[in-house]
Amino acid sequence: MILTTLPATAGVGFKPEHFGDVLADGGFGGFFEVHAENYMGAGGPPHAQLTRLRQDHALSIHGVGLSIGGAGPLDCAHLARLRSLCDRYAPESFSEHLAWSTHDGVFLNDLLPLPYTAETLAQVIAHVDETQSALGRRMLLENPATYVLFAESDIPETEFLAEVARRTGCGLLLDVNNVLVSATNHGTSPERYLDAFPLAQVGEIHLAGHDLAEGDGGAPLLIDAHGAPVADPVWALYARTLDRTGPLPTLIERDNDVPAWPELRAEAGVAQRLIDGAAAGASVSKRVAA
């Protein structure tokens, strides 16, 4: 079982349009993260670029299509593709989501929510076990951004994730933006969620921007759109988390309205300074105003 971890630096989600700028930059020392499914073709520019990036950077492969939270069995062909991708690039980390995206063979291309019950806990544990066996490596499981809750849920999400990690040995990917999005949408406290989160299992943090939409009855509705810079309240929750965990690998995710490379690099620079502060033993939450 491969147990490698990302370095505690600030990384950026790789966008092909930044490839030339990243090579010309040369000074970026963080890691890159890519969506596994975008690199499942046989060849071409995606592999040429990733092979080149891999020479200079730590790599996180982040799956968005395995449907680990689904009721049905995992797609063996997809597991084999993930295995082959991980064998080819030997990433420091592989991660996937506590969500489902495939039902009855139809792929819905979204991270859909599941109720948290003894039944779904057993399903997710079995799927994480199967994934880790198939890949021969420890994986990280990410907390989702959710918009609805299920009447039958009787396990808090933090407890659910902690139990999956305890039973399978997997690590967790803490998406701080998802914490704020879900808490706002469900009228709960993001601080309390983070206080209950099994931080010792966290192998990576995600930071991203969200959209604010009008919910029903004027209640705020946050959308995990990855189309804006990281919001101030997310920076504050992040710094508060680093105060408790110390330095952790941290990714700036941006998938829509992607800005030029220098802007994303600067955002990663903000995270890097907080990581450095945490590594020096400072309380970094005082540096960030919510």
Binding site: Y147, V148, L149, F150, S153, H186, G215, D216
Partner: peptide
């Protein structure tokens, strides 16, 4: 779906 905070889930 649950009615989180008494809100109907349609919009969400």
């Amino acid at each position: 779906l649950a009615q989180a905070g008494g809100r109907a889930p349609e919009r969400r």
